[in-house]
C-alpha cells in the first residue's frame, strides 16, 4: 500500500471538484474492494476522497413509479428495504447472493458498480495483466481461467465483472445518475460497464472526474416472476461461475415480457435485448427457455478451464427461467436449488 492523502468531501460539488483537480485520487465509500486492492499495490491512489458522509443514503420513490437509490445506500439496507423486497425482489435476491453479511453492511450501492474483477492475475503484481498494467499481456488467457469470460472477451482481457447486484440492475434496466464538472447525466445500465476491447484497464464509462450519485429503477419490477440463480464453487461466499437474473411477465402461459441477464460470464453483466424480444409471445416452457439460452450463448467461447461454463450457463438459464415462470424464485438462504 502506498502512502496517500486523505480528505473528506463536504458535498457532491466538492467531491467533483476534488477529483477533477487530482486525477490520481479515488473516492472511497465502504472500501470493501478498494482497500484490498490498495494493500496489494494494484490501486495506488495519491489521495482518498471520503464520500461516505455525503447525503446519498436515501431510497425515494420517483414520480413515474420507480425508485431512486442513493449511491451510498449500503448493500444490506438496500436488500432488506421494504420497497425493494416488495417491488424489486430480484434485486434483493441478487444482493443477498453476493459476498457476506459483513461485506454487504459496508459496501455501498455505487461502490458495488465499481468493484473490480477477481481475476487471479489482476490481483498479483508479479504477473502480466493488461487490465492492471496495460500492454503487459493477459496471463489468464493461457493460464488459470476457470472464473473467466465466455462472452465478449478480447485478445487483451478475459476477465469477468464480479458483481451480483449489477446483474439484477442490468435485467431491471436501471439508470445510473452521475455528476461531473459539467453537471449531471444519466447512463443507461447497459452502457455503464464496458467490454474490454483493447482498453481493458477501463471497466466502465464513468469518467475519471465523475461520481455516481444514484441508481434509478424504472417502475417495472417483475415482482411476481423472477429468480436470481447463482452457481458457484461453494454454497456461499464465492464469486459466480454463472449467475442468472431472470424476470418474466406472463399472460397465462405466454411470455409478455422477458429479461435475462448473466453474471460471471463477461466483462459486464451480459444481456441481449434481441433475445428477450424474441421470447415475447413464446410459451413459458423449457423448450422456449432452452431456445433463449442457446440464443444468448450463441457467441460463447470457452478457454482451457472454463469451457464448461457454456453448458452450465445454458442449464442455469433454463432453470432460472423455469423458477421465475413457476413463481418459485431461488432462495438465497436455503441452498437447495429449486
Amino acid at each position: 500500500m502506498i502512502n496517500f492523502q486523505y480528505a473528506r468531501a463536504t458535498d457532491i460539488a466538492d467531491a467533483v471538484r476534488q477529483i477533477a483537480g487530482e486525477p490520481t485520487a479515488k473516492f472511497i465509500a465502504g472500501g470493501t474492494n478498494l482497500i484490498d486492492l490498495m494493500k496489494e499495490n494494484i490501486e495506488r491512489p495519491s489521495r482518498l476522497i471520503d464520500i461516505s458522509r455525503l447525503p446519498l443514503k436515501q431510497i425515494e420513490e420517483t414520480g413515474d413509479g420507480g425508485l431512486r437509490i442513493g449511491a451510498l445506500v449500503p448493500n444490506s439496507d438496500l436488500a432488506y428495504h421494504a420497497l425493494i423486497e416488495r417491488r424489486y425482489p430480484l434485486l434483493a435476491s441478487a444482493i443477498l447472493a453476493g459476498a457476506s453479511a459483513q461485506l454487504r453492511n459496508m459496501a455501498s450501492t455505487g461502490g458495488n458498480l465499481l468493484q473490480r474483477t477477481r481475476c487471479y492475475y489482476f490481483y498479483d503484481t508479479a504477473t502480466p495483466c493488461n487490465k492492471r498494467a496495460p500492454g503487459s499481456g493477459c496471463a489468464a488467457r493461457y493460464g488459470l481461467n476457470r472464473m473467466h469470460a465466455i462472452l465478449g472477451s478480447s485478445e487483451a482481457c478475459i476477465a469477468t465483472h464480479p458483481s451480483d447486484m449489477c446483474v439484477a440492475l442490468a435485467a431491471l434496466e436501471a439508470n445510473v445518475h452521475v455528476a461531473g464538472p459539467g453537471g449531471e447525466r444519466v447512463i443507461a445500465f447497459a452502457d455503464f460497464h464496458r467490454l474490454p476491447g483493447d482498453t481493458p484497464e477501463r471497466d466502465t464509462t464513468l469518467r475519471a472526474d465523475e461520481i455516481i450519485i444514484a441508481v434509478e429503477l424504472p417502475a417495472r419490477g417483475f415482482a411476481t416472476h423472477y429468480s436470481y440463480l447463482k452457481i458457484r464453487d461453494r454454497l456461499s461466499y464465492a464469486f459466480a461461475l454463472v449467475a442468472v437474473a431472470a424476470a418474466l411477465e406472463l399472460e397465462r402461459d405466454t411470455i409478455k415480457e422477458a429479461r435475462l441477464a448473466l453474471g460471471g460470464v463477461a466483462h459486464k453483466p451480459w444481456r441481449d435485448v434481441a433475445v428477450e424480444k424474441a421470447m415475447r409471445g413464446e410459451p413459458a416452457n423449457r423448450a422456449s427457455f432452452a431456445r433463449a439460452a442457446d440464443a444468448i450463448l450463441r457467441d460463447a467461447r470457452g478457454f482451457e478451464h472454463n469451457a464448461f461454463k457454456i453448458e452450465l450457463a445454458r442449464r442455469a438459464i433454463v432453470r432460472a427461467l423455469t423458477q421465475a415462470a413457476a413463481g418459485t424464485p431461488q432462495s438465497q438462504s436455503v441452498k437447495k436449488i429449486r
Binding site: 487471479y120 492475475y121 504477473t127
Partner: peptide, 21 residues
Amino acid sequence: DHTLGRMMNANIAEYHVPVNA
C-alpha cells in the same frame, strides 16, 4: 500457474474452504 510457477489463489476468498452454508 505452471507457466509462471506461482500459486495464484493465495487468499481465502479464492482458496475455498467450507463456509457455514
